[in-house]
């Protein structure tokens, strides 16, 4: 078995327990150590932005969203990892270089986060789509790849028109950009879980949520891999 991040072989003590566990391991312990998980206790209730002194409150960004849109279309976002240098390398290899199988590394953590936060809720899981152009360039949709790791049925409710990469825009440009999403189908009163790789300003997720809600969706949640 080899690590999906550093490609070194994974060494493990030979016990019966490991015999079975070994086949599931996608990442070596050395690489795994570099991942930093977010702690829900010291974070904004809504978007999981780490805040030190306001336990059990919302961050300024989320309050600003509420003010701007009267009612925030996004119920809650759950993110798993902090964005550190190591994850930056991993994500650039996954997303921009196109190493699709890197996503298997996150399988366990994604399933755990889903069970802890969204278990037994009647949610329709839908990944944030890519525009057709971007999809062809990359060969896969990273949000869909992440959603697949949950091992739950996925429904594509949205499409997206081609715009510039989010990562190349400033915060202001992002927040006031036009809504690139179109709804394909939504049933009245549907509860939706959006899946994406990053929560940065929360614009993308809110744009999608806004569009879904205008077409009849009830509540929209989000599960993202990284809070940056």
């Amino acid at each position: 078995m080899h690590c999906y991040v550093c490609f070194e072989s994974i060494h493990s003590k030979t016990t019966w327990g490991h015999l079975f566990q070994l086949f599931n391991r996608k990442i070596c312990l050395r690489c795994e150590k570099h991942f930093e998980k977010l702690q829900a206790e010291h974070a904004c209730l809504k978007c999981m932005k780490p805040i030190e002194y306001h336990d059990g409150q919302m961050c300024d960004d989320c309050l600003a969203w509420k003010k701007r849109l009267n009612e925030d279309p996004l119920e809650r976002n759950v993110s798993i990892f902090k964005y550190n240098d190591f994850l930056k390398d991993v994500m650039s290899k996954f997303k921009y270089r196109g190493d699709y199988e890197m996503v298997y590394v996150f399988e366990k953590d994604l399933q755990k986060a889903y069970v802890e936060n969204f278990q037994n809720m009647p949610l329709t899981i839908t990944p944030i789509p890519l525009s057709k152009e971007r999809y062809e360039e990359r060969g896969f949709n990273q949000a869909e790849a992440i959603a697949k790791q949950l091992n739950k049925p996925i429904v594509n409710l949205l499409t997206r028109t081609h715009t510039e990469k989010q990562a190349k825009r400033t915060k202001r440009e992002r927040v006031f950009s036009e809504n690139p999403f179109q709804v394909l189908e939504v049933k009245e009163g549907m509860n939706i879980l959006l899946i994406d790789d990053f929560y940065t300003t929360g614009t993308t997720l809110r744009q999608a949520a806004l569009e879904l809600k205008s077409k009849g969706a009830d509540k929209v949640y989000a599960l993202t891999l990284i809070r940056s």
Partner: peptide
């Protein structure tokens, strides 16, 4: 272990992926 598959089962090489991905397609 340096070969992976894209969602449509296309084989790609991970060893030289930093130079841009090569795959069957």
């Amino acid at each position: 272990h340096y070969f992976g598959r894209l969602p449509d089962r296309t084989v790609y090489c991970k060893k030289c992926i930093m130079m841009g991905r090569v795959s069957e397609k």
